[in-house]
Design a protein around this nucleic acid. Structure first.
Lengths: 274, 274
DNA sequence: CGCAGGTTTGAAATAGATCAACGCTGGTGG
DNA sequence: CCACCAGCGTTGATCTATTTCAAACCTGCG
């Protein structure tokens, strides 16, 4: 139960708009759109009608790109926009009393950072980037409008929120109930599945830009121990990790070792079968 | 990270209706109603109109009373009714691979057990009683009807779900980031506040029917250690526990020791100030 | 080249687990 | 009414997963 002791200075994200960009988000295929990963993921729940997809896309007021290690949403504030990850990795986190950072969850493309603010008057945790990242912004009013006028989209957003709750519960189980090595195995299985669910990979490798400290802060163990545990998974031939690329060499083995049962992710059959 | 090793036999709750009762839930004051604690708690978010309160009350199809240690909702099933705790304590839980029970959260009067089923097609965890308890049942169709036709109630339910998510995050932080003694202190602070928020106490004591194993399974430590940690809090004069009654002797002290900051509970000013 | 940020290694220290036993209390059955 | 037993709380001694501290190493970059 250690984690970073060094207090990261909280570089505050500059006001949205100041640092806008398109294209920074990477080369987008013709016809592809910023929130495709989200729409893809929602497909696990229901097929959204064209019109709904369109309304969703048109709700985006702007896109912002921010550097690595910047706070996008601060604790106790109430952002004016709901953020959706387009590109890059971010995380939810809180600081502990002694300055260590507890990572509550990772956010990858397609994840909604803060529906909470549609109803809650302050964020109970912060969100910051782990890599350079870009976000799509939807104003709070628009979100409320959706809730009140488009039941399909409303359900879709509520669904995403319930799934996130489920994932949070599993993280809880993982960290309270499993030893460090299984904990890491489970976490990696989940990340692989989430990439699949958002249409970000179809193979057994994923882009893995996190440093060991980022993993340590999420699992509640020290970097040193994270390192040793990671080595173990590698030497057991379960994973390989090279050049920011994570490959799961033995999916069944890793799943079994980490007691990973994807049902808590509430994915469709299609996603589950590759 | 131990918890119960003994597998409790999963006495399945008998079909709803078989074991109905009113009154079992305790003497109810004239004009008082089964879901008052829930309505009281929702008051932290918004004042529900008379009509909405009434609609809510009338949605209840029946009340059931069940004994201690019974499964009310099983993992992987999809209950036909949403359950609201009227009386007694229950918990969300999952079993770990080795048979230990991980408690994900406690449910006290006013808590909704399973809104999830309005949208998700299976429960990703189970719910069982920790004491004899009674529940109010609302059919799934009714809940969907509410979502689609009564925006105030829909918001209220969504709010409760978001708050629960926030609480789950804090449990995560508590268990991954704090040592056992602070962990217990934090947990007790939360339980005290939740009782207050649901209008179940106005003093510094609460009914506390849990056994040490129940606490251990929630904190992810052994009973033995739970026992020692509990003794520490007692001998430090922070709490007293006698005859199933928990008294917080030094609220400020306990809060400080457990790093408890109630903002994550999203309560109203009124609730926070006594 | 030198340095910062990240990974790796080793040795010593500790929170919490494990194992085993004892004691209390309330209920049940003879 | 007593004897017994089950469930729960408590204690002590030993063991272990993980922390802590400290240093070395690697690599890309200004």
């Amino acid at each position: 139960m250690p984690m970073t002791r060094r207090i990261h200075k909280r570089d505050k994200l500059m006001a949205p708009g100041t640092e806008t960009s398109h294209g920074g988000a990477g080369i987008r295929k013709a016809g592809a759109h910023a929130i495709d990963p989200l729409l893809f993921r929602l497909g696990n729940f229901m097929e959204l009608a064209e019109a709904d997809q369109l309304q969703f896309r048109e709700s985006i007021v702007r896109e912002v790109r921010v550097g690595k290690g910047k706070d996008v949403i601060c604790e106790n504030e109430r952002p004016d926009y709901v953020h959706i990850v387009i590109d890059g990795w971010a995380c939810r986190y809180k600081y502990l009393a002694d300055g260590r950072r507890a990572i509550l969850g990772y956010l990858i493309p397609g994840d909604v950072c803060d529906v909470h603010i549609a109803l809650l008057d302050h964020m109970d945790h912060a969100v910051s980037t782990l890599t350079p990242a870009s976000f799509a912004l939807i104003s709070r009013e628009t979100v409320n409008h959706i809730f009140e006028n488009n039941i399909s989209l409303a359900y879709a957003l509520f669904w995403a929120s319930l799934v996130e709750e489920s994932v949070q519960r599993e993280w809880f189980v993982n960290n309270t109930g499993r030893p460090a090595d299984k904990r890491l195995a489970h976490l990696l299985c989940e990340l692989q599945m989430r990439h699949r669910a958002a249409g970000l990979t179809r193979t057994n490798c994923i882009d893995f830009p996190l440093v060991q400290q980022d993993l340590a802060d999420a699992m509640g163990i020290t970097v040193v121990h994270t390192n040793r545990v990671m080595q173990k998974l590698r030497s057991d031939g379960l994973i390989s990790y090279d050049n920011k690329l994570l490959t799961i060499l033995d999916w069944e083995g890793l799943k079994a070792f980490g007691d990973f049962d994807p049902r808590y992710m509430h994915l469709s059959e299609e996603t589950l079968n590759l």
